[in-house]
Design a protein around this nucleic acid. Structure first.
Lengths: 167, 167
DNA sequence: GACAAGTAGCTTACTCCTAAGCTACTTTTC
DNA sequence: GAAAAGTAGCTTAGGAGTAAGCTACTTGTC
């Protein structure tokens, strides 16, 4: 028994077994923990971005522009599709980030319906620091796992991600 | 090479390598996928609960009462602590669920500040069906993994959950 | 080349959450 | 046993998202 004492997800599964012994609860051991990790680490990352004055959602917008490479320009449509956000939600994020001086909107020269969103120098400098801070938090969360365990975990999650698409 | 072609997370990591080759992006391969799986499977589970007229958050409230066992009674405080929700958020969920006839509030006989929340027969019957529907969706998401892979994944996630607590 | 269909981004109404503050009650401290 | 501190649940204000619908523009079809 290499395991420590039962955790919160184990307790939930035990409770279900007590009241509904017929339920096959295996998926809870995987997805219950995935939900919790996503939330806990997501919150920690949010705190890591806070000193830079941006939320996690706003980070995602600027980071998407940053990693797209020079000239760091995408359309609102591309951004909302990439970030799985409605166009209304993207309008709000762009408004906030434009006001904060991290990006700006210009008309698309080839399509008068469209806009082009470009990162500013200030946005680029900020995101280059913030991305490192966020990675540091996530690296710390992985510190209890060995290098091989991280590789195995990543591989299984990759396989699961593929199965889950279109679910 | 047992892997299929690159997925969305691989593409993001490649983009970062191109513009910031100094970044050590290993954590993205784990947490990027955890965020995506949580969202995709969470949305699918939400759709599985929809025929029962409840959201995922509302399911969690009734399910917490259900798995607590007879007499299926907890305080709003216990519920909001378990579900990591503010008391204001819990008030709203209880209002909706009480109006829907899935639970009811009674005064706590031992503490006149407090309330006791109890599931109704209708709530119990509904949750017993909904929990099976939700598990079915999650089991389907795991179908591409073998039994042993699911066990290994669950074990690694369990270890990661422990490290992540208090992050 | 006119007209239907499609697309881009924004606005509005609504939902659900949090943070902060409230009242009422209980527990601790002296 | 009175005062101080703590706790339970609710209310309010504000933030951020979705869904639906708008205008403006572009594309496809005949």
């Amino acid at each position: 028994m290499t395991e420590a004492s039962k955790d919160a997800v184990d307790a939930i599964i035990d409770q279900w077994h007590a009241v509904r012994p017929d339920l096959e609860t295996t998926p809870m051991a995987v997805f219950g923990r995935i939900y919790r990790i996503a939330r806990t680490v997501g919150d920690a990352v949010e705190r890591a971005y806070a000193p830079y004055g941006i939320s996690r959602g706003e980070f995602d917008v600027v980071a998407t522009l940053r990693r797209s490479g020079a000239p760091y320009t995408l359309s609102p449509r591309q951004l909302s599709a990439t970030l799985m956000l409605t166009t209304g939600g993207m309008t709000g994020r762009l408004d906030k980030l434009e006001k904060a001086g991290l990006l700006f909107r210009t008309p698309d020269p080839h399509d008068r319906r469209g806009l082009r969103v470009t990162i500013t120098d200030r946005g680029l400098a900020l995101i280059d620091e913030a991305v490192a801070a966020g990675l540091e938090v996530q690296r710390a969360a992985l510190k209890g796992l060995g290098e091989e365990e991280v590789a195995v975990l990543g591989g299984l999650l990759r396989k699961l991600t593929a199965d889950v698409q279109g679910a």
